[in-house]
Simulated assay, not measured.
Amino acid sequence: MTNPIRIGITGAHSTGKTMLLRRIEMELRAEGIRVARTGWVGKRAAGLGLPKREQHTAASTEWAIAQGIADEIGAAQSADVVLADCAVVDALACWHAAVEFRGEILDPGDDERMRLLAATQHAKYDLLLATVLDPAAPVEPKRHAYDSRYRELVDRHVHGLLAEQDIEHLRVTHDPHDEGRAVKTAVRLALQLVPA
């Protein structure tokens, strides 16, 4: 089996990441392409009692990055395209945001270690989509109880890390035309690269 196409998505909470990947998955499946999706790392972390969101720590970040890597490797065994919901840069951005939110200072050794671990994956994405936070877009409070300041910090850190590390990505705003462009780009890439 050849290496599958990897499409990752990153961005702040409730910025349409999962919905965007669902649209891409549906279009790819309609073309007969085998798709595997990863995600739900936050739920699994909570199930283990690991801190998340504003309480993210170096340990929970390391677990989230390592779990994301493992999930993507596992998904690659049976798919033509792997869709990574919450690419590994997400965990790093969430941790940076949490530390800033709490008014703490990052431990330089932990930060360097996490950056190196996340960096092992960046080049593996054939396409990385980065959603942009629209503070005016509604969030279902019963499903997502996010602190708005924390969401804004995550958004800033996601895009800051992408720029700082010169990680190639496609920005996706909340505009339906922009989201449609992202879906078309992902599908076109998969159709070009997946062997017939």
Score class of each variant (00 low, 15 high):
Asp126Cys: 07
Lys142Met: 12
Ala136Ile: 13
Asp155Ala: 14
Glu140Ala: 10
Val154Thr: 08
His144Ser: 10
Glu140Val: 15
Leu128Phe: 02
Asp147Ala: 09
Lys124His: 15
Ala145Trp: 09
Lys124Ile: 14
Gln121Asp: 05
Asp126Asn: 08
Asp147Asn: 02
Asp155Arg: 02
Glu140Thr: 13
Val154Leu: 07
Leu128Glu: 01
Gln121Leu: 13
Asp147Thr: 08
Leu127Tyr: 07
Leu129Asn: 04
Tyr125Ser: 00
His122Ile: 03
Ala137Phe: 10
Tyr150Glu: 03
Thr131Asp: 03
Ala123Pro: 05
Ala145Cys: 08
Glu140Ser: 07
Asp134Gln: 06
Asp134Trp: 05
Tyr125Gly: 04
His122Tyr: 13
Val139Glu: 02
Asp155Tyr: 09
Val154Glu: 04
Leu128Gln: 06
Asp126Pro: 00
Gln121Ala: 15
Leu133Gly: 04
Thr131Ala: 00
Tyr146Ser: 04
Lys124Glu: 07
His144Leu: 04
Tyr150Trp: 08
Lys124Trp: 13
Ala130Gly: 04
Glu152Cys: 11
Glu152Lys: 13
Val139Gly: 02
Pro141Val: 04
Ala145Glu: 12
Pro141Ile: 09
Pro135Lys: 10
Arg143Leu: 13
Pro135His: 10
Leu128Cys: 08
Gln121Asn: 11
His144Met: 02
Gln121Val: 15
Ala123Asn: 02
Pro138Cys: 09
Gln121Glu: 15
Leu153Met: 10
Pro138Tyr: 02
Glu140Asn: 13
Tyr125Asp: 01
Glu152Ala: 15
Thr131Cys: 04
Lys142Ala: 08
Tyr125Trp: 05
Pro138His: 01
Leu133Tyr: 01
Pro141Leu: 03
Tyr150Arg: 05
Leu133Cys: 00
Arg143Asp: 13
Thr131Gly: 00
Tyr146His: 15
His122Lys: 03
Pro141Thr: 08
Ala123Trp: 12
Tyr150Thr: 00
Val154Gln: 00
Ala123Glu: 08
Lys124Thr: 15
Arg143Thr: 08
Leu153Ser: 06
Val139Asn: 00
Ser148Gly: 07
Asp155Glu: 10
Asp134Ala: 01
Leu153Gln: 08
Lys142Glu: 10
His144Glu: 09
Leu127Asn: 00
Thr131His: 02
Thr131Tyr: 05
Leu129Trp: 05
Pro135Tyr: 11
Tyr146Asn: 01
Tyr125Asn: 00
Tyr125Pro: 06
Glu152Arg: 14
Gln121Arg: 14
Val132Leu: 05
Pro138Ile: 13
Arg151Gln: 07
